[in-house]
């Protein structure tokens, strides 16, 4: 009810609480993403960052709260929301190639039910192939498109996953730890691709683990520790003494901030 008439807000969350069994992981979160911005969700381990994305995407049940995308429920706007899951959740031994994975992102609606060998019958197929190819090119993976996914390096895998989201051509891209464990080259490729999205007016929300790089890569920050600790423009939030205090000594990578 609070969230109606918000068609300009790509993602708004009100009163969201999530529990793992009876253990609260996320408590009474109120937050909105700013259209056309890049937001980092940061917080200590177990702060509920991944859970928040999962709850927004209806992957985990919520105890309470309302979630709206452009003022509508997820089911109404599913194709406009793209998601890049954590790399750990994937079986990298699975027999698919990079191209297969990106094609999944490009596939839409009825195309899911048309076998690939009958692709020429579908008028939408040409567009899909084009979107998949240009997404692969955008992350510089065209040369590796026929490699089995398991034979790629961690960074290359992450690029393929971003390409899958790009191929979907959504307006809101949610990413779970996109920069975790990738090489410097991939970091640059990812940042550039995400910046290109916001330049087109699209919105990016990413769970991020490295406080040092938040300010240079993101516009906005949401600090979570089961509850919302702080939110707003990156520079303001990071300068906040309570935020500094939260991260001091909690993890080595966060300790550098103080």
């Amino acid at each position: 009810m609070i969230l109606r008439e918000q068609s300009g807000v790509p993602l708004s969350i009100a009163g969201l609480s999530v529990a793992y069994r009876a253990e609260p992981v996320l408590w009474n979160v109120h937050w909105s993403a700013r259209a056309g911005s890049m937001t980092a969700i940061v917080g200590p381990n177990g702060a509920g960052k991944t859970t928040m994305l999962s709850a927004a995407l209806e992957l985990v049940p919520r105890l309470a709260g309302e979630i709206r995308f452009w003022g509508q429920p997820l089911s109404a706007v599913r194709e406009r929301v793209a998601f890049v899951p954590q790399r750990e959740s994937i079986d990298w031994d699975f027999p698919v190639t990079a191209k297969d994975v990106v094609r999944m992102g490009a596939t839409r609606g009825a195309s899911w039910w048309i076998p690939s060998w009958a692709r020429r019958l579908s008028p939408a197929a040409k567009d899909e192939i084009h979107r998949a190819d240009s997404a692969l090119a955008q992350v510089h993976m065209t040369d590796f498109q026929d490699r089995p996914i398991g034979e790629l390096s961690g960074g290359q895998q992450q690029r393929v996953f971003l390409a899958r989201a790009l191929a979907q051509d959504g307006d809101l891209i949610l990413l779970d730890e996109p920069f975790a464990g990738v090489d410097a080259g991939t970091e640059d490729v990812l940042t550039e691709a995400l910046r290109a999205l916001t330049a087109q007016g699209k919105t990016v929300v990413a769970v991020h683990h490295d406080l040092d790089t938040v300010a240079e890569r993101f516009d906005d920050v949401l600090v979570l520790n089961r509850e919302v600790v702080a939110q707003g423009a990156a520079s303001d939030v990071l300068a906040n003494p309570s935020v500094k205090r939260l991260f001091r000594g909690s993890e080595p990578e966060f300790a550098t901030l103080s």
């Binding site: 929301v81 998601f83 899951p85 699975f94 899911w112 979907q168």
Partner: peptide, 13 residues
Amino acid sequence: TAATFDRTYATTR
């Protein structure tokens, strides 16, 4: 294929 490879992703689609 999508569901077996990456169930979470398939759900979001």
